[in-house]
Amino acid sequence: MTGAPNPSYDNILEIKNLQTSFFTKDLEVKAVDGVSFNIPKGKVLGVVGESGSGKSITSLSILRLIEEPGKIKGGEILFKGENLLDKSEAQMRKIRGNEISMIFQEPMTSLNPTFTVGQQISESFRIHEGLGKKEAKKKSIEMLKLVGIPSPEKRINQYPFELSGGMRQRVMIAIALACNPDLLIADEPTTALDVTIQAQILDLMKELQEKLDMGILLITHDLGVVAETCDYVAVMYCGKVVEFTDKKTLFTEPKHPYTVGLMQSVPQHDQDVDGDLAVIRGSVPSPADMPQGCRFAPRCPFATDLCRNKLPDLETDEEGNQIRCWIYSDEWDGDPEVNVHEQSKSTS
């Protein structure tokens, strides 16, 4: 652990106005464009969005793992009250894999094929806790047991290719949790897995989260996963948070037209949809051609001139829910009776 713990924080992570951009010859792609959210201690925050929403770049920014030509341009990332953007690279290394860990989407490619499972878990213990080879191996076996891998003494000497996708993701979790992190960032941890394996992994994550009392930042595009695992949800679109609320509010009364559109356009296995699915018309704008007003305006069925010309702020209501949409502001110039839950169904 680095530094004296700062007991004054309520949020394990607090992101304020984070901006991460990728620079090409003549273009700045604002992948993360002023993102703010926080994760209370020991809670699970889901970040939902489609590709291009900036959700993965946000997570990599937290660990400062953005590579050229990307750059974190501004904002604050307060972890236990301390701004990670002020830390040196050496200090960051002590935090990575120790206080903040990360697991990724592709268990098939996220483990190094030339090292055994044991070597890869041991490495964390050796870097962060300075353990010797033997002790690290012993603790690695314990970790494998913790994540539910049968006969860990045997598995520890195997190479990743000898394990199934689900097993590999368990190994990834073992690596991530080795040093008892306070925050786990999970970037689409179950997207590449089959549903029965996904259920196992989600169960495991929930169980360990309670046991170890850590915060989780869960990035996903699957609303079902959010519903089953998260306490809070941030919905992202085009590099911005458009809605931030607790899970129950999100699923019972979503406010942002994009959130509503997402929910209605995904067919669920336990609900029938009559006729066509609701659709969000058009597609995500290209970074080179970002709308100047609300990013969602060109696809939003309720958009007015105000939406098209002026970017709404992320406003916080009295219950602490946040929304970035003109409909909920005093300036709204459209139909005052508008119901965002009634979207049109069209095939275009």
Partner: peptide, 14 residues
């Protein structure tokens, strides 16, 4: 550029 190098960096490896 591969995923496992990102994993190593995320682990805090020098």
């Amino acid at each position: 550029g591969s995923d496992y190098i990102r994993t190593a960096r995320a682990k805090g490896v020098k």
